[in-house]
Design a protein around this nucleic acid. Structure first.
Length: 803
RNA sequence: GCCGAAGUGGCGGAACGGCAGACGCGCUGCGUUCAGGGCGCAGUGGGCGCAAGCCCGUGUGGGUUCAAAUCCCACCUUCGGCACCA
């Protein structure tokens, strides 16, 4: 027998799988389908690192298991290839991003193939391929048609280093998610997508899907649904009103002043009445200068200016209350105005203390002169007129009814979620397929003219004014209006990277279709994705965006269901050996190529699955890799231990059934580490025994195959088993045979282990009891004491309680 | 501040009411008729003991139970998400 040589056998089997199209997906709709999805990578110049294969291997294990279970499996891979690194590289080198992208893709593909993933490579999608982004543009036009894409002057987050506008989701702690530079606020004319129109359904429909709980929680958190009421406050001696959003209309009697955002439009309307306009304008200028970060994180001290000459009327008691402006009230949430209830709101309390405004207790329980009393989910109302003495919950019902009756308020739901800033002032992205005509306004490029391709340019630099490099390509910009034929200009902003990834999983079902984004038959068959594994970092970006697009496509009848992904799971990060995040600058990056060359792809795959709890971050360990290689060596050396046998031997039968059960279940629950531990236990047992029969060997190889596909195929072939391993069926187990007939159990006295007995699982209590009483040590422990109670749990424990 | 997850040997981790530490790494010993490596076998939570065995032990303090890493209450720490969201 030759030595185990992964380098040769892995190449060999990869070629066989490729030549025989073993993992080619068919559209045979008579078979039950399984759609397994992993997030497609951005093909960076750095190539793969060992973090990538973790989720890929996990889903490869599931996909391979499903095929052996008889499913028609779709397990595709593609390239999310628009994006800044290729563009930045182009700025430096003047090499077109498409060339660099192509090279990077080739390298990524070669690396992925060397790991033996069972992707159907014939279905690869590439977001930068005009045949693909034609449909990205098509979806955008549909959104535009339905009024869900609109252009607006918006204060947006601007990254001065990347010279690019960012979506809220791309700003982390006031800094650019990509480069870490602090972002600033700039008012820009931007394309926006109305994701807020779907806020409610994006929350509600989480009930329809099987996502891990932390993903659902984070999405709900991000969307930030909050129930309350809009309440109207009249302004004394004017025709104007201020509408506020509050979650606690029951505390209206405690509202002693109002605060509006410095950007609130009423200030301009009432400027003639306001007697301190200078002061207000000065404050507005200050507020505008601050970044979101400064406004939110750094400066929690309350500042503000009273709006002199304007007085509001509290609708519940007609009290006159002052109006202030302060930057702690945001124009972008609710109505940009609040009623301040300093007795029961921390921020309002601080503000009231700062400016010496009255504080009234309306929910009993605290001491509002000392601090805001916010533990008010329940409590008794006081100082609240007709609400006095009521429980909070009753008061809420009563006040809302009262407000509605008087026409002073209505129930209202607000969301923290904002509309999606969809334009980027960049070259390397999908052109937004719209034309601006002086006569007709924004006009869509006709469908038959899609895709709108990127022009060749010499210079990729973004401009400091924030205009796209495309703006300088006059021959591309200048066009004619599709509607009136007059002169018109193309939109020069491009789409964000999140565009192409919002629907790529649809394209996999029918990747070469030139007439539609995918045929309805294929979408009906393959959707929804049965299992989608990806990173937690995409929970509030990609995952939310693609659910939004999918719901929209559902509404216009393109896709068959409201949710794209039936099940969503997530993996932990792989850290460097020093327990820090892997990065070039930290010098702790492990390259999968090196691991494959030294130990083999099967070892890498196995280690990635064995390394620890799949859902948690874990440091890389070179010694751990060696351990997995050692195991595969031991598996290889099972070959000479083979004996004949078409049924499991009596020595291994129980363990065999236990192993089938554990491995089958654990693969489904992402507990690959314990599945592999079980396979190791099995091999250890075979070594003790010194032999393994054909039936056992076959089952073992099939169980190990999803994790280590090459070595298992090779051994299968070398032992002369019929066909290829990948054509076999997943083994089944008999529950009854997973239970050992004789078993050693612990014997406790007063809950402490004092001995061990070996019993037959079917032995009656009396037999077990007799064996317990024969035990020397147990006898000593109970001697001279009175037995109060005896508990026998067959197969588990025998416990004696003595006094 | 709010929401969530998690604290178990030297390390990654198992067990999720029933013998804590499966499996792997590391370490120790023995064998493989020199060494080293590789491989095989055995051992490996701490303390006491020649041993049989005993005591202690799953972040901390209480509680429930015949029995708690596991369930309940309070707290501490770490990590992740959100955060002046009215």
């Amino acid at each position: 027998m030759p030595k185990y040589n992964p380098q040769t056998i892995e190449k060999k089997w990869q070629n066989i799988w490729d030549n025989e199209q073993v993992f080619r997906t068919s559209d045979d709709r008579s078979k039950k389908k399984f759609y397994a999805l992993v997030e497609f990578p951005y093909p960076s110049g750095e190539g793969l690192h060992v973090g990538h294969p973790r989720p890929y291997t996990a889903m490869d294990v599931v996909a391979r298991k499903r095929r052996l279970e008889g499913y028609n499996v779709l397990f595709p891979m593609g390239w999310d290839a628009f994006g800044l690194p290729a563009e930045n590289y182009a700025i430096q080198t003047k090499i077109h991003p498409s060339i660099v992208t192509e090279q990077n893709i080739a390298r990524f593909k070669q690396q992925l193939q060397s790991l033996g993933f069972s992707f159907d490579w014939s279905r690869t999608v590439n977001t930068t391929d005009p045949h693909y982004f034609k449909w990205t543009q098509w979806i955008f036009l549909k959104l535009f048609e339905k009024g869900l894409a609109y252009k607006a002057e918006m204060p947006i987050n601007w990254c001065p280093r990347c010279k690019i506008g960012l979506a809220n989701e791309e700003v982390v702690d006031g800094a650019c998610e990509r480069c870490g530079n602090e972002t600033e606020v700039r008012v820009k004319n931007q394309w926006m997508l109305k994701i807020t129109a779907y806020a409610e359904r994006l929350i509600e429909d989480l009930d329809l899907v099987d996502y891990i709980e932390r993903v659902k929680i984070q999405q709900r958190n991000w969307i930030g649904r909050s129930e309350g009421a809009d309440v109207t406050f009249k302004l004394k001696d004017t025709a104007e009103e201020l509408v506020v959003f509050t979650t606690r209309p029951d505390t209206l009697f405690g509202a002693t002043y109002m605060v509006i955002s410095p950007e609130h439009p009423i200030l301009a309307k009432l400027q003639d009445r306001i007697t301190n306009m200078d002061e207000i304008e000065a404050y507005q200028r200050e507020a505008r200068k601050k970044t979101e970060f400064e406004r939110a994180e750094l400066n929690q001290d309350k500042t503000g200016v009273p709006v002199k000459g304007v007085t509001a009327i509290n609708p519940v008691n007609n009290e006159e209350i002052p109006v202030w402006i302060s930057d702690y009230v945001l124009m972008s949430y609710g109505t940009g105005a609040i009623m301040a209830v300093p007795g029961h709101d921390q921020r309002d309390w601080e503000f009231a203390k700062e400016f010496d405004l009255p504080i009234i207790e309306v929910v009993q329980g605290g001491d509002v002169t000392q601090e805001a009393y916010t533990d008010t989910q329940s409590g008794i109302m006081v100082n609240s007129g007709f609400l006095n003495g009521l429980e909070v919950a009753e008061a809420q019902k009563k006040i809302i009814a009262w407000l509605e009756e008087k026409g002073l308020g209505t129930p209202k739901v607000n969301y923290k979620l904002r509309d999606w800033v969809f334009s980027r002032q960049r070259y390397w992205g999908e052109p937004i397929p719209l034309v601006h005509c002086k006569e007709c306004g924004w006009v869509p490029v006709p469908e038959e003219e899609l895709p709108v391709r990127l022009p060749q340019v010499a210079n990729y630099e973004p401009t400091d004014t924030g205009e796209s490099p495309l703006a300088n390509i006059r021959h591309w910009v200048e066009t004619s209006c599709p509607k009136c034929g007059g002169p018109a200009e193309r939109e020069t902003d491009t789409m964000p990277q999140w565009a192409g990834s919002s629907w790529y999983f649809l394209r996999y079902t029918d990747p070469h279709n030139d007439n539609e984004l995918a045929s309805r038959e294929n979408l009906d068959y393959w959707l929804p994705v049965d299992w989608y594994n990806g990173g937690m970092e995409h929970t509030t970006l990609h995952l939310l965006y693609s659910r939004f697009w999918h719901k929209f496509l559902y509404d216009i009848g393109v896709v068959p269901g409201p949710e794209p992904y039936q099940k969503r799971t997530s993996h932990g990060m792989i850290l460097g050996e020093n327990n820090e995040k892997m990065s070039k600058s930290r010098g702790n990056v492990v390259n999968p190529d090196d691991v494959v060359n030294e130990y083999g792809a099967d070892t890498l795959r196995m280690y990635e699955m064995f390394i620890g709890d799949f859902e948690k971050s874990v440091p890389w360990s070179t010694d751990g890799v060696r351990g997995c290689r050692r195991f595969l060596d031991r598996v290889w050396k099972l070959q000479p231990m083979l004996v004949r046998g078409t049924a499991y031997s009596s020595e291994l039968e129980t363990l065999m059934h236990q192993t089938i059960k554990k491995v089958s279940n654990d693969y489904e629950e992402l507990k690959f580490n314990t599945a592999i531990a079980q396979l190791m236990t099995f091999v250890n047992e075979v070594y003790h025994l010194g032999r393994i029969n054909e039936a056992e060997m076959k089952t073992f190889l099939i169980l190990l195959n999803p994790v280590a596909p090459h070595i298992t195929e090779e051994i299968w072939e070398r032992l002369g088993f019929p066909g290829m391993l990948n054509e076999q069926s997943w083994p089944t187990y008999d529950e009854a045979k997973t239970i050992a007939q004789t078993i050693a159990i612990g014997v406790q006295v007063n809950g402490r282990v004092r001995g061990e007995i070996t019993v037959n699982i079917d032995d009656p209590v009396e037999v077990a009891r007799q064996k317990v009483m024969e035990n020397e040590n147990v006898r000593r422990m109970i001697e001279g004491k009175q037995i109060v109670k005896e508990i026998y749990v067959p197969g588990r424990i025998y416990n004696i309680v003595v006094k």
